[in-house]
Structures are given as C-alpha cells and as structure tokens.
Design a protein around this nucleic acid. Structure first.
Lengths: 234, 234
DNA sequence: GTCTATATATTGATAGAC
DNA sequence: GTCTATCAATATATAGAC
C-alpha cells in the first residue's frame, strides 16, 4: 500500500528551476527562508478562510490580504497570482484529506477498521472544517482544477479500498453490499458536519448545537453503520 | 401538519404595493403578464445554472445574461438587482426542497415511510441537482441569506418530524437512536449524489458512473439504513 | 520587503435613444 | 422592451519609490 502522492499539475514545474532568474521567491511556490515560509503560512491560513467560504471566483485578494493583515501588493509579493494560493491549498488539503482512507488496513479487523475510519473522518470535520468546505466548494464548481486527480489518484485509491471491503464481505465479516457507495456514504455523513455546519447548528438549536454534537454524531453514525435502523427482533 | 410556508424576507414586501409607481414590472418581483413571466423563467433557469456552480459572489450578471440569451441591461429590466434573482431562486428551492420531509406521515408505517423519504430525496438529487448545489453553496458561505429560515421554519419542521421518529422508536418500530442525526444522515447521503456528482462519476468511472448509479445508490442506502453493515448472525 | 500609486479589466447598475 | 453607451466601484496585477 504505497502512500499515493497527490499533487496538482503545475505547468512551470516541468522546466528546471535553475533556468529562471527567480527574483521573486514565491515564483516557484517554494519558500527559501524561514521568514518567507512563515509569511506564506499566514497568507495560506487567511486564504483558507476566504476560499472555503466564497469559492475561487467569489474570493478576492483584498479579502485575503485583509485577513492576513498585510497589503495587497505585499501579499502578491509572496504569491504572484491568486491561482497559486488556491492551488497550494488544494494540494495540501487533498494530501491530508485522504490520509484516513489510505490508512484503512486490509489486515485489520473489519468492524474496528470501519468504525475508526468513520471516527477519523468525523474528527477531521470537527478539527478542519474549512478544508472540508474548500473541497466541497471545488466539487460544486465541477472540480475544474482537480478533476484529473479525482479520476486517477483518487479513483485508484478508492478502487483499492473497495477491493479490501469486498474481501471482507466475501469472508462474511460484513454484510455484502456495494463498497463504493459505502465509502460515499461515509464521506457524505461525516463531511456533512463541516460543510452544512450552519444548518446543523440552526436545527439543533442552542441546547444540542454545542460542541457535544460531534459526540452525538459519532454515536449515531456508529450505530447506523453497524446495526441500521431495524430493532432487534424479539 | 400545516404546510409550513417558507419564504425569504423582503424589506420591500412590507409596504403596500399600490404606493409605488412601479414603472418596472420586475420591481415587485411578481410578473404581471404572461410574456413577462416567461422571460423571468428563462432568466431564473439560466441563473440557477450559474449560481449553483459559482455561488452568489462568484456568479456574474454577464454569465447569467449570456446563458439566458439576452443582453445584460435587458436582463436587469426584469430583475433590477442580482440579489433579487438569487432570492427568488432560494425561496422557490426551499419550498420544493423540504416537501419530502413535510410529507412524512406520522400515521404511516415507519419503515415504508423512511424508505420512501430516502427514495424521494435521492430522486430529487437525480432530477434537480442544481437546486441541491445552490443550497449547498449557500450553506458553505454560512447561509447569510437564509439563516433565519433555518433556525425558525426549518428547525420547527425538523423538531416536529423528530418527534414522529421518536414516537416510532418508543413503540419499538425502529431502533432507538438520535432522530436529528438520523435526518442529517439521510440529507447528507442523498444530497451527496448531486453536490459531489463530479467526484462520484470520477470514482465510479465509465462503467458504473452512468445513469445506473442512482439505482445502485438507492439499493445501497436502503440496505444501510435498514440493516446496517453487520452480517446476519448464523 | 513593504509601501503608494496606478494600469487595465471586469463588475453591478443606469441613462437614454429607438 | 431592447439596445448602445457609459458610470462608478471593484478586481487582478504591476511599477517604482523607499
């Protein structure tokens, strides 16, 4: 199970770095000094805020610069193009986002493996909701910037894990069902708590909309995926 | 079970319509002649395309006008403001979107009721994916334009249906679990096939990504919600 | 590295001829 | 009702002083 490296295509990546004069440090997208990396991190942090809320077109450099506490030209010194910031965020997000799926162990016990996958995904919705929304925003737009990654790297990873699930089904460890839609349903239910957070809070209200909602969700999802809705027959 | 009227607030709505000269027919947002309504429908159809993909800020009147096959000033003759188009779409969408939940019958048989709710929601994702994405886009932005509707009308409706589910649990018809998170999980799993359509297609590939995916999803979700993943014990 | 100033394009919206 | 022309505001991005 090699850790599939997910990385967005960059046209400038192909030619050797030495070729360009590279006055601007951010040109190659890789920071050279500590201070440069720190500044870039501040920008990326601010950009995540704005992009995850407004999408690529809806976000403006002004908003990002304001959130990062610097002027617009200053921001553009570190990332010469709006698209560069977005691409960096997408690449880093994809890498982190798929880690739980990669970590499903075909040699592990099926039920604990699935249970812990659900839990990890839910924790990511709790701890990194903006990354989830960034991804969701890209999806809603038709994934113009990562469609290639989806149909190659992601598809490959899901195919592999679907096979693992199927082997568990054949051995009678879990019910025989569609492994792809099983994965979709885990994605959907867990990411819902990040992407539709406002709605979840609004519906649960003051009482149950607090931080406890994630524990409630974890308990519910565990029960749903393991036992379904039918009561134990007497 | 009164059909809760979901309607977005409009500041201009309060004062009597007769007060204004109302040169522009679209000013009040209500078409007066057949031809006006048809033009507005063309615009709304085009706007749904653009808004559902780009979100409110990301969408431009230019794009909508182009998709509607008319000039920008001409479009603005029917809807004097970008926001008016968006609000109309949101109001109409919310009304349709919540119909399946409203229709859950407390006097019906629990299992068929839930099963048919899942099916109807999935069919809506299949037949009206853009409405789903429009809603999702608004959620990702923090629902700035419908947060009030969510915490009043929607919360009220969900509270009511949660009680229905709980009464079924108490009578032993379905497993005792959290009714709110049950509803969330049905929303999440069904809407996923509209909102993340690109991803679903990319992962399933040419073979299984065709129209049959909705039937596969329906079968899977039915099994998941009814029986869960654990195999029948021998 | 950071700033002010600005070039250039696009945006939402209006004016006014027809 | 529809068009061309256009305005004011905002957008991405650059120039050049410091």
């Amino acid at each position: 199970m090699p850790p599939i490296k997910v990385k967005m295509l960059d046209k400038d990546e192909a030619k050797p770095a030495a070729e360009t004069g590279a006055k601007k440090p951010a040109k190659a997208g890789r920071p050279r000094t500590r201070i440069q990396r720190e500044k870039q991190d501040v920008i990326l942090e601010a950009a995540l805020d704005v992009f995850s809320r407004e999408g690529f077109r809806g976000a403006t450099i002004d908003q990002i610069a304001e959130a990062a506490g610097m002027s617009k030209p200053n921001l553009l010194y570190y990332f010469p193009r709006k698209e560069e910031i977005y691409k960096r965020l997408m690449t880093e997000m994809l890498d982190v986002w798929l880690a739980p799926l990669r970590d499903i162990d075909s040699d592990g016990d099926p039920v604990p493996e699935i249970r812990s996958y659900i839990r990890r995904k839910l924790e990511m919705s709790r701890d990194f909701p903006r990354q989830s929304r960034l991804f969701a925003n890209e999806m809603l737009q038709g994934a113009p910037r990562i469609i290639d990654v989806l149909s190659t790297d992601l598809k490959g990873l899901v195919d592999e894990k679907a096979k693992v699930l199927e082997s568990w089904m054949e051995r009678g460890k879990i019910r025989r069902t569609d492994p792809y839609h099983l994965i979709f349903s885990i994605w959907a239910t867990t990411q819902h708590y990040a992407d539709f957070d406002v709605q979840v809070r609004a519906v649960l209200g003051k009482g149950r909309g607090g931080e406890g909602r994630f524990e409630d969700a974890a308990r519910f999802l565990e029960t749903l995926f393991l036992y379904g809705l039918l009561p134990k027959q007497p």
